[in-house]
Amino acid sequence: MKYINDPNRMQIEIIKKTYIFSIIPIVYALIAGEFETLLGFILGLIISTLLLRLRVLNIERSLDMPEGKAETFIRNRYFIEYLIYFAVLVVAKRNPSLNFLATAVGLFMMKFTVIIWAIFDMAKGGLQNKLKDYKDLKEDKYEKGGQ
């Protein structure tokens, strides 16, 4: 991951990648004419984006606190986030114009994106290492052949 030293840039990258990945389900819902799915998914996506921002602010605030206080602070904030998730999912379940599972997928989209991104980065790193090894081996062979 490129922007590991810059939390704000990383946050923007996560949001950008999540929205790019979200194009697939949104286009599917539009083509299939499932507007409940579309609305539910967009609601989940918006809430997860806002909660990501809230999480970054909470983390930055917690780093200036003493250790014990930071622990309690983050734990309490997590339970507040949990309540927000609960409210969103209950609204999606009770409202007939929103699809419950699509809302859940929208909330999970950010996590899926981060996991896919990490796997992709790992695979890319492994492939680059293999290519480098192969090139080194080839250069060694040429050098030995030249001698």
Binding site: I59, S62, L63, E67, E71, F73, I74
Partner: peptide
């Protein structure tokens, strides 16, 4: 998460 935050602070 709380535990991780405490360790991150230190």
């Amino acid at each position: 998460m709380g535990f991780a935050a405490g360790k991150a602070t230190s």
